[in-house]
Amino acid sequence: MSDTWFRIGDPVMDAAQGRAMVVVATPDQTVAEWSEAEGYDLLDNYANSKFDPAPDEPVVECVYVSDVRSEPSKTYTFPASRCRLIDVHHADDGRRLYDRVARDVLEALFRVAAASDMASSAEAVYDVASHATLGSALDEDVVEEAFELAEIEAKFGGDDGE
Score class of each variant (00 low, 15 high):
114 A>S: 00
62 C>M: 08
52 D>K: 14
30 T>G: 06
60 V>R: 05
31 V>W: 09
92 D>Y: 15
138 L>K: 01
79 P>F: 01
89 H>P: 06
94 G>I: 03
129 A>V: 10
125 V>W: 03
99 D>K: 03
65 V>R: 14
53 P>L: 04
67 D>L: 14
54 A>R: 03
147 F>G: 07
102 A>H: 09
61 E>Y: 03
25 A>S: 15
29 Q>M: 09
27 P>E: 04
25 A>V: 11
97 L>H: 13
98 Y>A: 13
28 D>G: 08
52 D>H: 12
142 V>T: 07
130 S>P: 10
29 Q>R: 05
103 R>Y: 06
77 T>Q: 02
66 S>Q: 10
96 R>L: 08
72 P>G: 03
58 P>V: 02
84 R>V: 04
38 E>M: 14
93 D>K: 08
62 C>H: 08
65 V>C: 14
104 D>M: 12
87 D>H: 14
53 P>A: 09
135 G>T: 00
27 P>A: 02
94 G>E: 06
24 V>G: 00
96 R>Q: 07
38 E>G: 09
99 D>H: 11
118 M>L: 14
114 A>D: 03
138 L>F: 00
29 Q>A: 05
76 Y>R: 06
140 E>N: 14
42 L>R: 12
50 K>N: 09
54 A>W: 06
57 E>H: 06
125 V>I: 03
143 V>G: 08
54 A>T: 10
30 T>D: 00
84 R>A: 05
42 L>A: 13
131 H>T: 11
37 A>H: 10
62 C>V: 02
115 A>Y: 07
85 L>Q: 08
34 W>F: 12
24 V>Y: 09
143 V>S: 06
94 G>L: 05
81 S>P: 10
71 E>K: 11
24 V>W: 07
126 Y>S: 05
44 D>K: 12
91 A>M: 15
25 A>K: 13
40 Y>C: 11
74 K>Q: 09
121 S>L: 03
134 L>N: 05
46 Y>N: 02
42 L>F: 12
91 A>E: 15
131 H>D: 10
88 V>K: 15
121 S>W: 09
41 D>K: 12
104 D>V: 08
121 S>T: 08
102 A>R: 06
87 D>V: 13
57 E>P: 04
62 C>L: 05
27 P>I: 01
28 D>M: 06
96 R>T: 02
42 L>V: 15
56 D>V: 03
57 E>G: 07
99 D>C: 07
102 A>M: 12
67 D>V: 13
94 G>Y: 11
96 R>C: 01
115 A>K: 05
141 D>C: 01
36 E>C: 01
142 V>M: 08
141 D>E: 05
24 V>C: 02
131 H>N: 10
137 A>L: 00
49 S>G: 03
63 V>M: 07
136 S>H: 03
43 L>T: 00
131 H>R: 10
52 D>S: 13
66 S>V: 13
50 K>I: 03
42 L>H: 10
48 N>R: 13
110 F>I: 01
97 L>G: 15
126 Y>P: 01
103 R>F: 11
91 A>V: 14
76 Y>P: 05
80 A>W: 02
39 G>Y: 11
143 V>M: 12
131 H>M: 11
79 P>W: 00
75 T>G: 01
38 E>R: 15
53 P>V: 15
72 P>H: 07
33 E>H: 10
27 P>K: 00
139 D>T: 09
